[in-house]
Amino acid sequence: MTRLALLVPGGRGQLGSDLAALAGQVGLLHAPGSAELDVTDVGAVDDAVSSFARAARDAGLKPVLVNASAHTAVDAAESEPERAYAINAAGAGRLAKAAVVNGVPMLHVSTDYVFPGDGTRPYEPGDPTGPKSVYGKSKLAGEEEVLGAGERTWVIRTAWVYGATGGNFVKTMAKLEGQRETLSVVDDQRGSPTWSADLAAGLLELAGRVVGDQVPAQRVLHGTNSGETTWYGFTRAIFEELGADPDRVTPCTTADFPRPAPRPAYSVLSGAAWAAAGLTPLRPWREALAAAFATVGNHLRP
């Protein structure tokens, strides 16, 4: 792995932080946060990618750009679509163009929200998209920008991500467990909870392949922990990890908790293409959740 160098825009976020934690496995890692690298700034993007590529090659390393930057405030995106598109679409496109110009392969992280959410079986990468929210539409536009920039760009869709850094569903439920006697959670939305550390490890493995002799022919892949559940089922599992009674969690419907942005009712992503590319399948979501609490539980608990 020491022959790799990684540039990770969005490096202070949930996934970016876990990628940065793998720095010991690569020869060079630069993981700037949004304050250090504004992906909406063309000049800053061009300078960052070109200087990174030069430093990597001077050190005899193979550079790869892993884009973890994103506007992920799903509800806020409904009222600020310009900002969502600036980061998720135009920003991703600028990174991809700069990567191509500098001969740097790019892995772009996307989302289950690009699908309409009315499926009945896990979505394959080639299934028709049809996002319902501004967030999903902006991320789909970003995928198109990235894939259109050049042949050495890949899109990796993921879903229901949680980790040690920043805010996420696991942290919110852990906090509410200590504040409420019972908790009503949506039971009619299905997906695959994904630990950001597992996704980061998968992306590092993929990065090694795109600079090696086993370049994936499939340019859109799905990377999530395997299996599926609902937010209600996920919360019961979180309570179990907290040592709390899961029966304190009760099911409700999406209609009971209206939100500005529509959520996909079904957004399970198939890992078949990931495995077919020779990549290590991410472990079952329940196993990953237990491992997350065992290793970074102090960050997940309030």
Rank of each mutant, 00 (worst) to 15 (best):
T2E: 15
A174S: 13
G126Q: 11
K139W: 08
V64P: 10
G227A: 11
E177N: 14
E287W: 00
A76E: 12
P246R: 04
K97W: 01
A201H: 02
V114Q: 05
L19N: 03
T182F: 02
T158G: 07
N67T: 05
W160A: 12
G24Q: 06
A276V: 01
D118F: 04
V155A: 10
A89K: 06
G166I: 05
D127P: 12
D198C: 08
G297D: 03
Q179D: 14
F52R: 10
N168W: 01
R259Q: 14
F234A: 14
S34G: 07
D213T: 15
V101G: 03
G178V: 08
L206I: 03
R54G: 04
P9E: 02
A200M: 07
L65Y: 00
S79I: 13
T280R: 09
R263K: 14
G10P: 01
E228A: 13
K139F: 04
P81R: 03
D112M: 12
A174P: 11
P281I: 11
L29C: 09
W231D: 02
D18M: 04
D118A: 11
V134Q: 09
L279N: 01
L300G: 11
V39N: 06
N168I: 03
E241N: 13
V49A: 08
R263I: 02
M1E: 06
V39M: 11
V155N: 03
E240I: 07
G278N: 07
A291G: 05
K97T: 10
L15N: 08
L183D: 02
A261Q: 05
A277S: 14
Q189M: 07
W231E: 01
E124G: 07
D187M: 08
P9H: 05
K97V: 10
E145D: 06
G142L: 06
A207V: 02
A76G: 02
A277V: 02
P260Q: 11
N88C: 13
G148I: 05
L22H: 09
D256S: 15
L203Q: 05
P131C: 07
L203E: 04
V210Y: 04
V134A: 08
R286L: 03
R12Q: 12
R219V: 00
F52C: 10
L6T: 02
Q14G: 07
E240V: 14
L22T: 04
S110N: 09
V66T: 07
V114K: 06
E145V: 06
S267T: 07
P264V: 03
A290P: 08
I238P: 12
I156Q: 05
V210A: 13
S110Q: 01
A272M: 03
I238M: 12
V211S: 14
T2A: 15
P32E: 01
A96I: 06
G212P: 14
S192A: 14
A273S: 15
A277C: 09
R283T: 11
G202V: 00
F234D: 09
V170S: 12
E78W: 06
V211L: 06
L29T: 01
H71L: 05
G119L: 09
L107V: 09
R180T: 07
A294W: 01
T172K: 15
G16F: 07
A174D: 08
S270H: 02
N168M: 03
H299M: 05
A261K: 08
T230S: 15
R94M: 13
G10S: 02
T40D: 01
R301G: 11
V8P: 10
P193N: 10
A149M: 07
L282V: 01
S270W: 00
T111S: 15
K97R: 15
D58F: 02
N102E: 15
G126N: 15
